[in-house]
Computed example of a mutant assay.
Amino acid sequence: MSIPLNILDLVSIREGSTACEAIANSMSTAALADELGYSRLWFAEHHNTMGLAASSTALLISQAASVTERIRVGSGGVMLPNHAPLMVAEQYGTLANIHGDRIDLGLGRAPGTDGMTAQALSGSSAEPQSFAQNIYDLQGWFSERGQAYSTPIKSAVSAGTNVPIWVLGSTMNGASIAGQLGLPFSLASHFAPDQIDAAIKVYRDSFTPDAPTAQIDKPYVMAGINVMVADTDAEAQREFTPVRQMFADIGRGRSRQLQPPVEPSEFAAQGMGENPMLTISAVGSPDTATEQMAEFVERTGADELITVTYAYDTEVGQRSLRLLADAWF
């Protein structure tokens, strides 16, 4: 039986488009994902990035939950150093009160931006011990008592919501934190492939089911993978070029909106090979892509996959979701 499939949405803004249009397209995709049987829809948090409209994660989650009925909606994730933990508890407690038991809270230690912007956003420490303590306090605010463990401050709106928490990470540090806290781990393998196997091993080896913060009794991994599915391998490779251009821009320090697809041969002509950050990708026809995904599941032992699809044309992205759902579920 296939493992659950999820979607990570960065709300990309294509060249010549606006953030308003990107958000509207994202909500249309959310409704489709709900219909197709995807298990979770998570929104990332990025700042000072002209090609992405995923900044106010809680607002995107609330809107997506309003246009869906079944799918779990959450953060992939809240970059906790950018926020005051109490505010996160109040926001996600409010979401749970409005939308019921469909809200996930994924937490990361990275700022999701550059150093200058991170300083402007700073709400808490990214130091591992502080990060762990903040998670413990968040659980207190989500508990029946509605009170953090390190302070007498209470939160009525989050009390009793018990919003499930995930730890996000791309390195062994994040994996170790997730394991020691006894929490599920979401691995950012879709852009950080270098430490996948080591990070998963560290997570499983360090997993502590009797930790005060533990929410599960055994390790549970969700791994990220870039996906583009089309009718043919050649078509999928062409539609995958916008993300290849985006990562090439990152390497050059250039910030642009999502570019239209080009012929893959143009990359070779410009002296650009495959980007190692995109190693974990499934690109091709339904048979090709699902075979690549199955191999990745076999390698990692992942309990769930979270797919990332950048498409210049919204219809192309949504067709990819349909083709994948038909082939996987």
Rank of each mutant, 00 (worst) to 15 (best):
M246F: 05
P128H: 05
E15K: 09
G51A: 11
R40K: 10
V283S: 00
R70P: 09
V11A: 01
A126H: 14
E239I: 02
T288L: 05
T290K: 13
P128F: 03
L36D: 04
M272A: 13
Q215L: 14
G108H: 07
I7T: 08
P152R: 00
D217P: 05
W328P: 08
L321S: 11
A31Y: 10
D197Y: 03
I23P: 12
L41N: 03
T290G: 10
S158M: 13
E266N: 01
P164E: 08
A199G: 11
N48M: 08
V157T: 13
E266M: 06
E274N: 05
D233V: 01
E239T: 00
S320A: 06
L8P: 10
S158I: 07
S124L: 00
A269E: 14
F240G: 00
F191M: 11
D114A: 01
I153H: 12
S17D: 15
M79H: 03
Q237V: 03
T309R: 05
D313C: 06
A248C: 11
T18N: 09
D205A: 03
E69S: 12
F43W: 03
E266W: 02
V283T: 11
A24Y: 07
E298A: 15
L324N: 05
A118K: 01
S176K: 15
Q237K: 13
A214R: 10
P242H: 00
E90Q: 15
F207Y: 11
A96C: 00
N162Q: 07
S285T: 09
V229S: 06
E239A: 08
L181S: 04
I71S: 00
S122R: 15
T213S: 15
T151H: 13
S2C: 08
D9L: 01
V221Q: 12
G123R: 10
A64L: 06
P276L: 04
N6P: 02
T288G: 02
E15N: 14
I71V: 11
L8R: 09
G224P: 09
I177H: 05
L258C: 04
Q318K: 14
H47N: 10
Y312W: 09
Q245P: 06
Q318A: 11
I13Q: 13
S56W: 02
S75T: 13
I103S: 02
R254P: 08
V202A: 10
L107K: 01
D104C: 06
D231K: 12
I306Q: 03
T151A: 04
V227I: 10
A22H: 05
V73W: 06
A188V: 12
A294M: 11
A327M: 07
M246K: 05
H190M: 09
D287S: 14
T57C: 04
S12L: 12
E304I: 03
T314S: 15
T290V: 07
A268K: 12
G174M: 05
F207W: 03
Q257V: 00
V283N: 03
V308L: 15
T49H: 13
T49Y: 13
L10Y: 11
Q215S: 15
L187F: 10
S281L: 10
S281Y: 04
N226P: 07
E235F: 02
H83K: 05
Y92M: 12
N226F: 04
D137G: 02
D326T: 11
Q318R: 14
G301Q: 06
N6T: 07
L95I: 02
V262G: 01
G169R: 06
G169C: 02
P212E: 07
S28L: 15
A223C: 05
V67T: 06
M172D: 14
E291C: 09
A31K: 12
W328V: 09
